[in-house]
Amino acid sequence: MSLEQQVITFILYVFPFYLFAFTLYIVRALKGPTIPDTVLAIDALSFDIAAFLALLSIIYRSPILVACTIVLALWVYALDIYVSKYFTHKELGE
């Protein structure tokens, strides 16, 4: 088995586990009894998706797809900041 095939097979076997994890995260995000729970689930989900997208871009043989991961990581962090600022301060721009 060549290295290329081996890498692709490996990613193939990893794939369903990621899908399973994502499903659980999504369930928590949609169920989340409180707002912080949802936000936390989105956090973990998005960071994991970032890793997953990097893996996918190897399979699709288009390395340029990977730029999306950085952006996703950045903005999910910003979402945390918004929500916590919303709950702790009187005005968002203070």
Binding site: A29, I35, T38, S46, L53, S62, C68, L72, V83, Y86
Partner: peptide, 30 residues
């Protein structure tokens, strides 16, 4: 609750971003 609704819409947007990614539109995702 609007805050909750906004968070849910953020989930929906993230899902759409994944759809765009799988549909091979990195520009759109960015």
């Amino acid at each position: 609750d609007m805050v909750r609704a906004i968070v849910y819409s953020a989930i929906q947007s993230a899902m759409y971003a994944l759809i765009f990614y799988v549909l091979m539109a990195p520009d759109i995702v960015l």
